[in-house]
Write a protein that binds this DNA or RNA. Structure first.
Lengths: 231, 231
DNA sequence: TAGCCAATTAGCCTAGTGTCTAATTTGATA
DNA sequence: TATCAAATTAGACACTAGGCTAATTGGCTA
């Protein structure tokens, strides 16, 4: 099978590899340098030296191992985004633990690949991530996707159907809920909305009833989980 | 440029297109049927008929437009995951609003593409999404990525460096925090851990101090935001 | 026009919260 | 061994929260 890709004016994606195992490093470099439009400009076997090079070179993409000695891949990823904000980070690891996937993306990574990825796919990922895309390996994607809040009441989006179970909050109640999630007390909410504490309490009370929860902590958690407020 | 892909034993990815504009539908079908290993088995111009076909055919992938008449693409995506859980949904739209991106992924979509995607990339996305991967278009990926909690204290993951600002929670405190986020009162926490209320309060108190917050609502919100607890 | 609902306010009462000081036990570390 | 941190418990105190009843106002609808 032959795929013809027409990319005439495309400039090279400049890549740096940070990986402690020499064998993997060399293998990666070899595989990627076969690919047109990808240029591995440097390698590092630990985060410290990797960060130095990245600061100097400001590459398009960094391939980052998670299990590095010293500063680990996660911390390194955060640092990369500090010292070279336009550089995209692709995590390349053999771990498939949920915490690591989520933490990686939270640290600023744009992609998460397991090491058994085929080189062809990896090269496509590199090119697309360089442009800003996000990619998560098929073996762990579900772990990341389940984090997104289910839109049960995003009024803007649904066409008036469904909206079944939960009674909609009034506009005022939504305002109160937002402040509640910010950790404001009833007194603070009252001050912010320029109403009496009694009013604030009344709103909170009906929010609790509508969300079917017992107290404001549960209300806050539910609001975040279901995307009722923008976190 | 020529990419050689070795996929001898790969079976076809069965695709259904749900899109109201005939022109786009036909164009998509034409473009995708050019690609090896992708087989567009049906089209629908609205969600209702699309869902019927999907229920019957149980395809590998659905290409879903967001702006459908009647049931919209988001609701349709949720329904797809109900009637055919193994079918992956790729959102194909021209919208780039944050709410829609997040709501799509929350509704069960595995990928979000803008309509100006090049067919070659789309075909790669289809094949990889069919295997379980997640893909987000370069123009909107940042909107989704910023949702992931920044891991400021994921002990398991960091190598002992940094850990600067916030004091680590003890094991017991983490347990308490977890219950707190579930909306449990101090009394309930005490019962669950088989300790006195005083103990529970003591733990909560030190959690508040370590997280630098004033009350348990803020603690819960912070815990969720920073991924200190699995939601 | 009558009725309903959102929003507002008030008082009251019980239960829960957060802070403080103080003390004991246990396991790990220097 | 001496010391330290974590976990535990207690009492007390000032607030805060949540539930209840009740009343007023303004806007929308049957």
């Amino acid at each position: 099978m032959v795929q013809q890709t027409v990319r005439t004016t495309q400039k090279d994606v400049r890549v740096i590899i940070v990986e402690d195992y020499k064998l993997t490093r060399v293998g990666l470099r070899y595989a990627l340098n076969e690919i047109e439009n990808i240029n591995v400009i440097a390698e590092a076997q630990n985060a410290e030296t990797g960060l130095e090079i990245i600061k100097k070179e400001q590459p398009d993409v960094v391939l980052m191992d998670l299990g590095l000695p010293g500063i680990n891949g996660l911390e390194a990823t955060s640092k990369v985004k500090e010292i070279s904000p336009n550089t995209k980070v692709i995590i390349l690891t053999s771990h498939d633990r949920e915490e690591e996937v989520v933490a990686s993306l939270g640290s600023g990574a744009s992609a998460y690949c397991l090491k058994d990825i085929d080189p062809n796919t990896l090269s496509n990922v590199i090119k697309n991530v360089a442009k800003g895309a996000c990619w998560i390996d098929s073996n762990v994607a579900h772990l990341a996707l389940k984090l997104f809040p289910k839109p049960e009441n995003t009024e803007i989006l649904n066409s008036g159907h469904s909206m079944d179970v939960k009674a909609k909050l009034t506009e005022r109640e939504s305002e109160v809920l937002k402040l509640l999630v910010q950790g404001k007390s009833n007194t603070e909410i009252a001050q912010e909305l320029i109403v009496s504490v009694h009013t604030a309490k009344a709103h909170v009370c009906s929010i609790l009833q509508k969300l079917c929860v017992d107290d404001r902590v549960q209300a806050a958690v539910k609001a975040i989980k279901e995307g009722l407020v923008s976190v």
